[in-house]
Design a protein around this nucleic acid. Structure first.
Lengths: 226, 226
DNA sequence: GCATTGATTTATGTATTCATTAATAAACGC
DNA sequence: GCGTTTATTAATGAATACATAAATCAATGC
């Protein structure tokens, strides 16, 4: 044990989860690639035990698959998968929008939502797709939080993780989402004015359109797996 | 190692998952109770390692919680939790109904659905709540399967697991669900005749009503935790 | 008598060891 | 030379061993 300062804020298993997620999202562990438990353990500087526990968790979240003797496989996301995921996101986010509108939030409580919309406007003006994607994520995450259903939050986060990898690959071929922010504003307005039906309807249409654009792009560009 | 015949169809970890699930659903591991890893390992006749892996999985599925030094806690399900769960079920099952109707299934492909409905009729006639609940589960599971979205299937199964414990406790205080099967038939008809909007709308109303009945009962009877 | 500090216990988190079994390579028969 | 069978390798699944840190208990000081 060297005398360097050790951070012990997290257990090794937790660090393994964080690190594996990072490696997956960054593409350092490519979709479809296989990795032995021992290899990952060496790479993360710990024994197989916490790595295995982390892999089990990530498997339950659909990011990878543990196949005996063949190693941990980073799951690819097909365009078919993306359709499934967007369908789930559409339903659950629409519910969140409806409930957020019914909750009667004050202007102040909707500040984060508003900020995200402004940031998207700014990003569009600057033609900064990266910044736009970040703010868009923020908008959707905040919307779901306002919906007040912890299970919806968890599921949406899980599905969003699976989308995240595809986003990085498709961002460059996407058009600037000009229409998108009008929808966001309309949803925001519906929530602020306490109109659940409108919030649900608009957000639902918004998500369905996003789904068509994304899956259309994926299939057009033959990006079957990401 | 005694010379008896060994069944090696499953790994110990898989057996641990099955067994723990059984113990939880049967109430032998009561909601809210704590159990040390060592205790569970002894009980299942294996070492802590596979028990830990099983517990990690069940934790990710919301059935229990692992709290350092306090043991594995079987999660209680509050009436608030039940509201959350039913909201998720409502949205995702409605989607499944819509998609099933859009898929254009033949009469033969809908046989299982039809059987479940008939079985519910029979159970109602016989005033057999147990049999009714089983057939009802079957109907909903089959509906989701017909929806053709594997993620929806997985999420619904997870949420249904959490509902299952509450069902056992509330079955005896529920009225015979006379109205319920009319809804089921209407959904079935909408799917058979390829009417997605109707299938969605009716199933959605059906689930929302179920939610009101269940959460109403839970709160009326002060069954805050199950 | 109560609080605070220190010792002890003990459950977990992790490393290590071991057994099993699938995959690969090698050797043999034809 | 090719297919089949056997031997070897190696990766996982599981048990055990161990270090750590939290919780309990005791003891001491006030």
């Amino acid at each position: 044990m060297v005398g360097l300062m050790e951070k012990k804020t997290h257990s090794n298993a937790q660090r393994a989860v964080q690190e594996l997620r990072r490696l997956i999202f960054s593409g350092e562990l490519a979709a479809g690639s296989d990795h032995l438990e021992t290899e990952l353990a060496d790479r993360l500087g710990m024994s197989r035990t916490p790595v295995r526990e982390a892999a089990l968790l990530l498997e339950s979240q659909g990011l990878l698959e543990m196949r005996p003797r063949k190693g941990v496989r980073i799951l690819p996301v097909s365009s078919g998968d993306m359709r499934e995921i967007y369908d789930v996101l559409t339903e659950l986010e629409s519910l969140a929008a409806e409930r957020a509108a019914a909750a009667g939030y004050s202007n102040a409580e909707l500040a984060a939502l508003n900020t995200a919309i402004s940031d998207m406007d700014a990003a569009i003006a600057a033609e900064d797709l990266e910044a736009w994607a970040e703010a868009d994520d923020r908008f959707h995450a905040e919307l779901v939080r306002l919906g007040g259903n912890s299970r919806v939050e968890m599921i949406v986060a899980m599905m969003s993780d699976q989308v995240r990898r595809a986003k990085a690959s498709t961002l460059f071929i996407r058009p600037l989402p000009l229409q998108s922010n009008e929808d966001h504003r309309a949803v925001y307005q519906a929530i602020l004015s306490g109109d659940p039906e409108t919030a649900r309807r608009i957000h639902r249409a918004h998500r369905q359109q996003a789904r068509e654009i994304l899956t259309g792009l994926l299939e057009k560009h033959r990006l079957k797996n990401l």
